[in-house]
Simulated assay, not measured.
Amino acid sequence: MLDLAPWAWALLGLGALVAGLGKTAIPGSSTVTVVVAASILPARTSTATVLLLFIVGDVFALTTYRRHADWRTLLRLAPAVIVGLLVGAVFLALAQDGIVRRTIAVILLAMIAITLWRRWRSRTEKSGRIAAAGYGTLAGFTTMVANSGGPVMSMYFLATRTPVKVFLGTSAWFFAIVNLTKVPFLAGIGLITPSVLLLDLLLAPLVVIGALIGIRLAKRMPQQLFDRLVTVLTIAGALYLLV
């Protein structure tokens, strides 16, 4: 797996940089990392590789936003998220690589479509236990299969009218806990291998650099421009995975 072409290493490096940036500055941009990894590596392998890179980024997200979490929201989501994680783990254990690859693409396209629809709708609604169950289950499944639970949780936090700082702090704790929970599942089905660990060791410094850049630039970057760029890149990457 490490015998990759220079252009593949360059893209993986870019994906690692974006992974760090997405954790501290641009929520949702880490989807680009998912697309890049799944385009270059076997789909199931890419899931494990990206997970470990995201955990590195989680450290910096917690360092920056850890004090603003709403633990009642996390506890409300927990049962549904666990169900989604279990379903996603079974799917990864049974599905062939090609199916996982296309599932990642479909999930990404669906999340983009729903996110854009929510923005176009431009209003939020109060959400109760049913919404928490739906969003939580979908977030657990998508994050297990494709490390793409971010858009789902963003929609939930928007629907519950969560303040910005609480949004960032709760997201940081949510993904730190969920990502650590996923490690034994992926290890148990044989996806965390020495090759994956070595690849992540080589890419981790770029995640750190991206996270540090994000911390410094979070309040200066034109969010609308980056949102559009990430959306375009993610759509293009997801369509590529479907081919």
Rank of each mutant, 00 (worst) to 15 (best):
K219V: 11
L233A: 15
G149V: 04
D227A: 13
I189C: 08
G150M: 04
V50T: 14
T162M: 15
W71L: 09
I215F: 03
S30E: 11
I177E: 03
P27G: 14
L191C: 01
R216Y: 07
L225C: 11
T49K: 07
A159L: 01
L108D: 04
A110S: 12
R44W: 02
Q96G: 15
P42M: 09
K165Y: 09
D70S: 03
I104D: 01
G98I: 10
F226E: 00
P194Y: 07
F175A: 10
V178Q: 09
T162R: 04
A172W: 00
R123H: 15
A238P: 09
A110R: 00
M111I: 08
A43C: 00
M155K: 00
Q224G: 14
A48P: 12
V106F: 10
V145P: 12
L158G: 05
L52M: 12
P6C: 05
V196D: 02
W120K: 06
F60R: 06
F167A: 01
W173N: 06
T115N: 10
F167L: 01
L75I: 13
V81E: 05
L41H: 05
Y135E: 02
L21A: 12
A37K: 00
T64G: 08
V36N: 12
F141M: 12
L206Y: 10
P42I: 01
T143C: 00
V90L: 14
A95C: 05
I213A: 15
N147R: 09
